[in-house]
Design a binder for these strands. Structure first.
Length: 820
DNA sequence: TTACGGAGTGCTGAG
DNA sequence: CACTCCGTAA
């Protein structure tokens, strides 16, 4: 996303050549030049390819590259798009096009035009943690109780208002009830504080550009002239602000091409509005619609299974994916006793799949379980080479599920990489260092200032900071102004004044460095002068590790050194603020990828394990009482399944522990029951009547010999994970778990000495999963599970807005609000 | 002002 | 279990 350069001479491209390698619908999408275009692109239908070829075709047809803007969902996707386009039209011409995420493009626009809206070009982008700090400060200023008005809930409230393009006044007008009125007041205070800090949050990046365009038609007209061809990827995940942005930019020329798949819409919780794609044809009556239904990624079996999940959605755009790759292997279901066995199963399968024997013979043999079908050869992308760890991904609903998997992989010595989780930029020392860097550019950044004013400790305690706040509040000044004026502040102790003078001097020095030195030098100065380095180098192993992180941070900053000061630092901070989890994913051929289902969107792997297919996890507990949310869980399941190219494993456990407590019994996901039996092979678990209509009797291997199934047998010489939690694995005759001593309808019992005691407890539980209840404090919720714990019933309830709570039955005073 | 330990509490998802 | 918050002692 370098600044546009004057168009340069470029090699002549032949439009027909660009079309050559595409199928007919793809060609239609690429050949379409003027007017609105909706590309309904199913998973794996080659949409990135179509987008890239479309850009190339536009250029070949005479559109100057700088008039093209392509919007992607992540920076990583932008990079891939850029590479692909460069492969077609050359790097030189590609550099002239604008390719990036909505957020990055808007940040760039605001950097250039923001002064009309009261921002300086030094503005800071606040992340979620910063936002929470601002909300807490706003609550303090309004003298509100953060118990009654939970910062996280307010953040959601404010975010929703912004997604709808509602300002604080509008939010106040539309407020229903006291809580929302208060929310609107907090919203107003929050915005005021952002303005004081010369900062914007993620939503503001979009919102402010929309407002800028709406209030300054001249600016809008300039961008309309500049960008005459718009391409938007992942259109199903756009929110109202992004939608409005598209409409504004395309209002004159109508050259808006969007690509999306309503089946893959999984971000409604952050404002994505499915109507944007469903109503595209109504918004643009002259729209051309192209459906891409040929899939180049998965086997037909995987596609059929995935279709069974998604075909039950109401009001979806009708489409069905097909492939000419052949049926391929059955989808494998594994029924584990608990999450430890689940993880062990995955690890063992990974080990087996990547074993040297399989590697030598290639792994085509693994893909031909259904004998009537031709081998699922895929010469096109070379998938038939030796299988590597990097060909395997394990996907799960929530990050917390990764831990048990990591433990199992470590045990088995399987290399893995984790996407998401504790992110690099969220580590404390990294945030501290970045706070200094932010202050070096923008000392008004109050969140950064409060973060590091006493880090490392320099004798500026809470009392001193409170006095500074009072000084600033009384004068309507920034906290930084209060720091600078501290030497004249009689309310401060002499010692505090001295400490503050030192701190002010430190920041002023950093500001000077930031004005003229490259980004890495600024980082260097931040680390050294602040004392961060000295504080970390205390000889401890932890300190050493943290220091290593800061060195990495500085090295990353050095990548921006070629950009002249002060822009280099600005670019660095902007990129750091806008990186996504997916952006941090490296293509490591030697590592298994552990990833959330959300982050896995847009990726593909030859082999995918989806774990935790259980009621309460997928679908997630909080979605159980809401049909729309359930549909989103369904789409999320679909997204996960369609990541798999050749082999898909769906794994669920019968018992799962939640935050430290022992395992409770869980039901298999309803989505499993939607899968056609003839596409599946089932392993693990108890045989026979199990309440699962789809469980097949008999063993797990069909005897064809092409799938060397070893399920149900613990590997000799390897102790089971957490043996105390597992039933007698190695006594099971070919299958796991025999019969587990759990009375029907009753709570889970560990397969330990506790079992006997638990079995003696009275079995009548007042509550069961799915019951709708009301609690006097938490409001309405849904029972996730209920079990006997030391003589009382422990009810776990998911409350709307209050999270999942465990309550003691006899005290909770739960009220049944409907149903049984 | 800081360091420590115990208590309390929370797990969607993410730019 | 893993984090943050809070009170207390140094």
């Amino acid at each position: 996303m370098s600044p546009p350069k004057a168009p340069t001479a470029r090699p002549q491209l032949d439009p027909d050549e660009i079309l050559a390698a595409l199928n007919p619908p793809q060609q239609e999408a690429v050949r379409h030049v003027d007017g609105p275009l909706l590309i309904l692109a199913g998973a794996g239908s080659g949409k990135t390819r179509v987008l890239a070829h479309r850009v190339a075709h536009l250029v070949a047809s005479g559109v100057p590259p700088y008039q093209i803007v392509a919007v992607t969902f992540t920076n990583k996707a932008a990079g891939e798009m850029r590479d692909r386009i460069a492969g077609l039209i050359g790097a030189q011409a590609t550099r002239e096009a604008t390719i990036g995420t909505f957020h990055a493009i808007c940040a760039r626009i605001l950097r250039r035009e923001g002064e009309r809206t009261g921002l300086t070009r030094n503005f800071t982008i606040y992340d979620r943690a910063d936002q929470l700090a601002v909300i807490k400060e706003s609550l303090r200023r309004l003298d509100l109780d953060d118990k009654r008005f939970a910062p996280a809930a307010l953040l959601v409230f404010i975010g929703q208002r912004k997604d709808e393009l509602a300002d604080p006044a509008t939010a106040m007008r539309q407020a229903t009830g006291f809580w929302e009125e208060t929310g609107a007041r907090v919203y107003e205070a929050y915005q005021r504080q952002l303005a004081e800090s010369d900062a914007v949050d993620f939503d503001d990046l979009l919102l402010r550009v929309v407002l800028l365009f709406e209030q300054h038609p001249d600016v809008l007209a300039r961008y309309q002239r500049r960008w005459t061809y718009l391409l938007v990827d992942e259109y199903q995940d756009t929110n109202r602000a992004q939608y409005r942005l598209c409409r504004l930019l395309a209002a004159v020329h109508h050259n808006l091409a969007v690509v999306g798949d309503d089946d893959q819409s999984i971000y409604s919780w952050r404002g994505a509005d499915l109507r944007n794609i469903l109503d595209f044809e109504r918004d643009w009556p002259d729209a051309t619609v192209v459906k891409l239904e040929q899939n180049y990624r998965s086997t037909q079996t995987i596609l059929d299974a995935a279709h069974a999940i998604v075909s039950r959605l109401a009001g979806r755009k009708d489409k069905r994916l097909w492939t000419d790759r052949g049926a391929g292997a059955a989808v494998s279901i594994f029924d584990a006793y608990n999450e430890y066995e689940e993880a062990e199963f995955v690890a063992r399968q990974v080990e087996r799949l990547a074993s040297s024997a399989d590697r030598r013979r290639g792994w085509a043999g693994l893909l031909t379980r259904r004998a009537d079908d031709a081998p699922a050869a895929d010469a096109a992308d070379g998938a038939s080479g030796p299988l590597r760890f990097g060909d395997i991904a394990v996907a799960y609903r929530v990050n917390a599920q990764s831990r048990v998997l990591e433990e199992a992989f470590m045990r088995f010595g399987i290399p893995y990489q984790l996407v998401g989780g504790v992110r690099f930029y969220e580590r404390r020392e990294v945030k501290d260092a970045l706070a200094y860097a932010r202050l070096a550019r923008n000392p008004a950044d109050r969140v950064a200032l409060e973060r590091v004013i006493n880090v490392p400790a320099r004798g500026i305690g809470d009392k001193t900071v409170s006095e500074l706040r009072a000084w600033a509040d009384g004068r309507d000044a920034t906290l930084w102004a209060a720091v600078e004026a501290a030497t004249e502040n009689a309310n401060l102790a002499t010692r505090s004044r001295a400490a503050l003078a030192g701190f002010a001097e430190l920041i002023r020095g950093l500001v000077t460095v930031a004005a003229g030195e490259p980004a890495s030098s600024v980082l260097e100065a931040c680390l050294e002068r602040s004392g961060l380095r000295a504080a970390l180098e205390d000889g401890s192993e932890e300190g050493e590790e943290r220091w290593a992180n800061l060195v990495e941070l500085r090295n990353h900053a050095a990548e921006f050194d070629e950009v002249a000061a002060p822009e280099g630092l600005a670019r660095f901070l902007e990129e750091v603020a806008l990186v996504s989890d997916q952006d941090t994913l490296e293509e490591r051929p030697d590592r298994v990828t552990l990833i959330t289902l959300h982050a896995a969107k847009g990726l593909e792997f030859p082999i995918v394990f989806m774990v935790g297919l259980e009621e309460g996890l997928l679908p997630y507990a909080r979605a159980l009482d809401d049909e729309r949310e359930l549909e989103e869980e369904r789409r999320l399941t679909y997204v996960g399944m369609t990541r798999a190219k050749d082999r898909l494993f769906l794994v669920h456990a019968r018992h799962r522990s939640a935050w430290g407590s022992g395992g409770v019994e869980v039901e298999p996901s309803r989505f499993l029951a939607d899968l056609p039996e003839d596409l599946l092979e089932v392993g693990g678990g108890r045989r026979g009547p199990s309440g699962l209509g789809w469980v097949r009797d008999g063993g797990t291997d069909d005897g064809s010999g092409t799938t060397p199934t070893v399920w149900g047998r613990i590997r000799p010489g390897l102790e089971p994970l957490r043996p105390e939690r597992l039933p007698d694995l190695d006594l099971g005759s070919g299958t796991f778990g025999r019969t587990i001593p759990v009375a029907s309808g009753e709570a889970a019992t560990e397969a330990t000495g506790e079992a006997a005691a638990a079995e003696a407890t009275p079995p009548e539980l007042a509550w069961r999963a799915g019951d709708k209840v009301r609690h006097r404090r938490f409001g309405d919720g849904i029972v996730v599970t209920s079990q006997w714990v030391s003589g009382d019933e422990e009810v776990t309830v998911a409350f709307a807005g209050h999270g999942v709570r465990r309550l003691v039955g006899s005290y909770a005073g739960l009220e049944r609000i409907d149903g049984r």
